[in-house]
Design a binder for these strands. Structure first.
Lengths: 112, 112
DNA sequence: TCTCATACCTCGTTTGGCGAGGTATAGTCG
DNA sequence: CGACTATACCTCGCCAAACGAGGTATGAGA
């Protein structure tokens, strides 16, 4: 394994998507709304990012989906696979590491 | 103004570069080394990222450079312009906002 | 009827991170 | 002397990812 991973760059959408879906099954539109609310507007994900990301995650075997009709509208519900959970754990570690690194740079007043 | 800015994505290299150079003048190679040390290996910046980024920042008027010969080697020292300082302040705000958003997502155990 | 919210989708562009490569000098070890 | 490492700069080309803009369709309410 030892795949790509955010070296410096984020991959925030992937992280956030996996994390939201780790709790419970959700469908795309719901994810976008929830993200906005929970992050208190700090994060928003456009549909041009959201749907391609979900498809890619599913294609990689990190998500599983099922389709359900509700009030004549189609919802595609996603949930994490075991691989998705492992991936999430890994990405979370990387995120913490990276953001702590950035904080160290931002916080320091002198370097030598 | 009101330029693009990292919507979801990072722009970590730009932020970090500006922050390091806000303290004191540094040259490229030194930046790469310092970043690694100060971030305790959490962040590294390859030369294929570093130099193009520095040039782009200078072209945008956020950095100013001067060249100096030291022991027969050429060093290009960079420092922030006033615009660079303003940009740094802005990016720092965005970073905090974004990373707090991510933390809220990571930290929450239930959403409704 | 029109608009808004819901719910999905894709296409094309741009940006930017990154590896790999290239040049040159100074110092160290054998 | 020759090889190698560290210093110091640079560019090219690839690829992935974020994003805006556009498209389809339904249900509810004004």
């Amino acid at each position: 394994m030892s795949e790509r991973d955010p070296t410096l760059m984020s991959g925030v959408p992937e992280l956030v998507l996996l994390r939201l879906l780790a709790h419970r099954e959700m469908y795309g539109y719901e994810i976008a709304r929830t993200l906005k609310v929970v992050s208190q507007d700090a994060l928003t994900i456009g549909e041009g990012v959201l749907y391609p990301a979900l498809h890619a995650l599913e294609a990689r075997g990190l998500l599983r989906s099922r389709t359900q009709q509700v009030d004549g509208r189609t919802r595609v519900y996603y949930q994490l696979t075991p691989r998705g959970h492992r991936r999430l754990a890994r990405l979370t570690m990387n995120w913490r590491r990276m953001s702590e690194g950035v904080e160290r740079i931002l916080g320091a007043t002198t370097y030598e």
